[in-house]
């Protein structure tokens, strides 16, 4: 028998596996930090799906037609499904859903800052589907190639649904832009309010992204935040133009040399204010989640008690 393999040796082999493109599965050895980082990222992702139900759920009872109501219900239901699916994928790393939710409710775990903005008019539902799900698709398509098997598979499955979300959002806005003057104003207003927060979804600039280097070495992240953000902008600007929406950035223009759009400057003060809990709806979102959890306690207790009584 071989002598005990050292931690350093294991870590070296782990890195070799990653470098040669081998996917890591739950039972494989992994550095403790890799596990921790994935738990942090994946649970944050799952929380975002669930908290993300709130701003859109806000308009389900006011959706303006039976079709729009059905589509929005289906969309928000998908997001709950994504949450469930990613929670399960995260559980493969040795943490359970109850603990993750506890971390969310106590503020220990974060969720995407975008959901701390209010949905003020119907066009916001279009803007979320188009911009927020659009940004999510860029992120998740990259994550679908990440080194952790359960996360990567979850992303592949989820991305299919995100494309439908993205289309229905764009369709809402396209429809409004062909409508009355008031509807067009609604759509432009939503565009103005959601554009910059959508760009913030990709996180801080690489220079200020503390975890980036390590995550890229482990292929948890495959592209830098700035690259993904640029990809989103390049893809979205022509879509906005096609339906007559103006992007609220006077520095935005096509650069024929780089073959990318040049654009302005994100208000990072706003970004840090929102992620540290001072966005417009942080308080509402958290109290809605904590409230649902607390009000549901007796229901979960009843289900557990019933199951206990009827074990056979």
């Amino acid at each position: 028998m071989e002598a005990t393999i050292t931690e350093a040796q294991l870590e070296k082999e782990f890195q070799q596996k990653i470098d040669s493109g081998i996917v890591i599965e739950p039972k494989d050895w992994m550095p403790e930090r890799y596990r921790k980082q994935l738990i942090r990222m994946m649970s944050q992702h799952a929380h975002s799906e669930v908290v993300g139900m709130l701003p859109e759920g806000n308009w389900i009872t006011r959706a303006p037609s039976l079709d729009r109501k059905a589509i929005l219900l289906a969309k928000v239901q998908d997001e709950a499904g994504h949450g469930l699916y990613i929670y399960s994928a995260t559980e493969t790393l040795g943490i359970d859903r109850a603990e993750m939710m506890e971390q969310l409710h106590t503020g220990k775990a974060k969720y995407s800052s975008i959901f701390n903005y209010p949905t003020q008019n119907w066009a916001d539902i279009g803007a979320i589907g188009w911009l927020v799900d659009g940004a999510a698709i860029i992120n998740q398509t990259a994550l679908a190639k990440c080194s952790y098997g359960p996360y990567s598979r979850a992303m592949i499955r989820i991305c299919k649904e995100e494309n439908f979300h993205n289309k229905q959002g764009y369709q809402i806005l396209a429809y409004l832009m062909r409508g009355t003057k008031e509807q067009q104003e609604m759509a432009q207003d939503a565009m103005n309010r959601w554009w910059w927060p959508s760009l913030m979804m990709f996180g801080p600039s690489d220079a200020n992204s503390p975890n980036s280097a390590e995550l890229m070495r482990w292929k948890v992240k495959l592209h830098s935040n700035d690259d993904l953000r640029q990809r989103f902008i390049d893809r979205t600007v022509p879509q906005a133009e096609a339906i007559g929406l103006t992007i609220p950035d006077d520095k935005l223009r096509w650069n024929p040399d780089t073959r990318h759009y040049d654009w302005g400057e994100i208000n990072w003060d706003e970004f840090y204010a929102v992620i540290s809990g001072n966005g417009p709806c942080n308080h509402e979102r958290m109290s809605a989640r904590v409230g649902a959890h607390e009000k549901g306690r007796w229901v979960r207790e009843a289900a557990a008690a019933y199951a206990q009584k009827h074990l056979n």
Partner: peptide, 26 residues
């Protein structure tokens, strides 16, 4: 039923109730 969306006691119940609401609207 759709008023519950995002506020159910358990995530699985959120999904189930959205499903019921969706059937009813259909």
């Amino acid at each position: 039923v759709s008023e519950w969306c995002g506020h159910a006691p358990i995530l699985e119940e959120d999904i189930a109730m959205a499903n019921i609401a969706l059937d009813l609207i259909g």
